[in-house]
Design a protein around this nucleic acid. Structure first.
Lengths: 194, 194
DNA sequence: GTCTATACCAGGATAGAC
DNA sequence: GTCTATCCTGGTATAGAC
């Protein structure tokens, strides 16, 4: 395997395990049997290493958002968006990068990769919250997304990946359905006022 | 005001604004017109500064947990615990420290203050999730707590503090009530099996 | 008891040799 | 494509001034 890929793998592992800031490039280099300066041949900076393995997740999110915006809105779409969100981002052992995100939320606020990911998540949240712009539906949407993420670190370790997935979506769907209920009530009130 | 207190104030502000790791002690010292070494007279280390202003919040949490464990369980207690959680931790402009927590989740995993706070939050979560130990109720409890925290950064800025508080608790109560519902259903099933 | 001066070592980054 | 040497900044430690 080429050095560039090996750097990405080792960095992702250490950044996730010990945190981005607490991982020195010397550690990464030593684990690969090279010097710090060698890393700087392959990547412009420490941050660039992060960008390189996050890029892919951003593209997946963009694809999801583009698809969601092309569909007719409704309860079914909300559920479908969140299901796809969970499967695309965390499915098939792809969650290594997502675990990195969970473990490094703070730093990511100052990293371009983090800001881009944040932006995508906000757009998904807005899709789920619907057009009524109520604060409570925004909270419900945020919690639904958080349920999916939390399924990887909130639950007890003996629970299987499949169960985590199913439980997270079950609770999240309750929140999404409640959003739709509140929307419907709001429209009834509007109609009554006319 | 004495230097020790001023160090705490400036450090809390900078640690929250720019992050714990990205804030150097030189910055803190300069802002106070002293040298780095002066800080080391008042605090053993950078981490000690954090401990000093988090201590207080830990005591508040301990008090809340002790009280909750002395009360008869039920739906009402859950709501009361979460209400008190929100008021004790975030009330009366006390949320500066909580904002520090939100902004520094990663580092706090390696800091004693963070581990202690984490431990308290887990215990509150267990109280809210109830005795049935189901994964879905654990998720609901975690989300209810997260709703309170998120109320300070998820919602749009034009929403008042009072509204944030109310909306967060409203959504959180729906989750808590659902926990109780699921518990009741579980007991019915148990009874049917006997 | 409160602080300054100074030094040490580790971490990110760069220039230039091979 | 990789290394040595070097720079600057950051956390930490200590000696000593007032």
């Amino acid at each position: 395997m080429d050095t560039r890929t090996r750097i990405q793998e080792v960095a992702l592992e250490l950044f996730t395990e010990h945190g981005y800031e607490k991982t020195s490039l010397r550690e990464v280099a030593e684990r690969l049997g090279v010097t710090k300066a060698a890393l700087y041949y392959h990547f412009k900076s420490k941050e660039e290493i992060v960008n390189s393995f996050v890029e892919d997740r951003i593209l997946v999110m963009d694809e999801l958002i583009r698809w969601a915006e092309s569909q007719p809105p409704g309860v079914e779409l909300r559920r479908a968006v969140l299901t796809r969100y969970a499967d695309d981002l965390f499915g098939r052992n792809r969650f290594a990068v997502m675990r990195f995100f969970e473990q490094n939320q703070t730093v990511l606020k100052n990293l371009s990769a983090g800001l881009q990911m944040r932006d995508r998540m906000l757009r998904v949240a807005r899709l789920l919250a619907g057009p009524d712009q109520s604060a409570e539906n925004e909270v419900r949407a945020a919690l639904a997304i958080f349920a999916v993420h939390s399924s990887f670190f909130t639950m007890r370790p003996e629970i299987t990946a499949q169960d985590r997935h199913d439980v997270a979506l079950k609770v999240a769907f309750e929140l999404l359905d409640r959003i739709a209920e509140v929307e419907a009530e709001g429209e009834k009130v509007d109609a009554g006022h006319r």
